[in-house]
Write a protein that binds this DNA or RNA. Structure first.
Lengths: 223, 223
DNA sequence: AGACGTCAAGAGCAGTGCTCTCGGAATATG
DNA sequence: CATATTCCGAGAGCACTGCTCTTGACGTCT
């Protein structure tokens, strides 16, 4: 069973998500294809297995980086962003699995996925909340930074629900900044991993990522 | 030939990129699969055809929206972002084709793709440049907004090269904000199309997108 | 009229996911 | 200890995929 996800990951790095073949895994295991179906219901389930494995691995990497960071929100954000980017660069196919196209025609199995998939998001919420608290303490008058952004009641309710779910105390505005920063971060890293900015940009990708991360930090933390 | 990409697009919407089958297209055309190979070298080439078609369509949509917008940078940014999002929502599979995982194991055919693929990016650069010019005019002292962000010489050179390529006059800092906003925008839209924020967020996705777009506007335009 | 190029058909190869049945081995049960 | 039951892998097979090769029918141009 664990050998299956091992072989699956190995096959992922050399063929990509689309090239994942249960027959090939069976060959690696030295058995016939049908035998694999004892352990894994379908190719999609195998994919799901690899996805939760990757989510967990990524979240572990981020948590590791955050454990070594100070309490300063900006430093924590940078640690989160950089560890996420480094993980993506180290495992491009697994990143692809998580934040690329949902492969072929299989519906995201939210229930098995969300548990590990939201760990990083929760961290981001906490960081934005801390930054917000700091800003309010520094200058009581400047509270409400970014208030020009309109948030509908529905969205506010959803954000509050998630804040409670993750045990973070903050207001919806900070949460909005957090999820925007998170989506943006995913977009920026994907642009790098998928080489969407062109070949010459890929050569100095890390430097570009660095500047972009700073800009996003301004968005969540303020300046 | 044009019928092939028509059928390809039609098949895309109901089966996704992975389910694209030249045999199925042949069936739709009323001929046998091998006949299709007269017109299209391989499945990957067909995919490429669909990709450039989608890039062009998206850029047309954005240009159309920009044509009806005023000269105010913030309004132009919003028009760009919203038209892009609307296109993505209207054609999720084609969006997936462009900004999701590069399908299976085929290398992005940059030469055929970039021409149309960078049109939106060029628009974004122009908007950021205009915003920068406006800000400098409003208050000469506040020029250099966002100067705290560090940009390495290599990155600066690349940005300057692209600015010249697209005929936009501005400094590298504004360009950096533009590409960051662009990547972020792609990330935010993808998060919506791929439902990465959860099922309950998907229900009010447009409202969330609205707030996120405003936040990104702050990033490019300032406040 | 004859040659040439275009087009589609059909068979076929290698590969896929997946389902079924059938034996052998381990394990629990009397 | 013997028996029943469950587990696990093998193998055959179905329907499908992309793709190649050969064959034959048209139309067009010299």
């Amino acid at each position: 069973m664990r050998r299956i996800v091992e072989l699956g990951n190995a096959q992922l790095v050399e063929c990509g998500a689309g090239g994942l073949s249960v027959r090939e895994i069976a060959r690696g295991l030295g058995m016939v294809s049908s035998a694999v179906y004892r352990y894994v219901r379908s190719r999609d389930e195998l994919l799901t297995l690899l996805i939760v494995d990757a989510y967990g691995d990524l979240a572990d990497a981020v948590d590791g980086a955050l454990a070594e960071a100070s309490d300063a929100p900006r430093e924590r954000f940078t640690a989160l962003a950089e560890s996420m980017a480094q993980w993506a660069i180290a495992h491009p196919e697994r990143w692809t699995l998580l934040y690329g196209t949902p492969v072929s025609g299989y519906d995201a199995p939210a229930e098995s996925t969300n548990a590990d998939g939201t760990r990083v998001m929760a961290r981001m919420l906490a960081i934005a909340a801390a930054a917000d608290a700091d800003a309010a303490a520094d200058a009581g008058a400047s509270a409400g930074r970014g208030q020009g952004v309109h948030v509908t009641p529905d969205v506010r309710a959803l954000l509050d629900a998630h804040l409670e779910e993750f045990g973070v105390e903050s207001d919806a505005m900070a949460a909005m900044r957090a999820v925007t920063a998170w989506s943006s971060l995913v977009g920026i890293i994907s642009a790098h991993v998928f080489r969407q900015l062109g070949a010459d940009a890929a050569a100095i990708g890390e430097q570009i990522l660095g500047s972009q991360t700073e800009l996003l930090a301004d968005l969540v933390i303020g300046r």
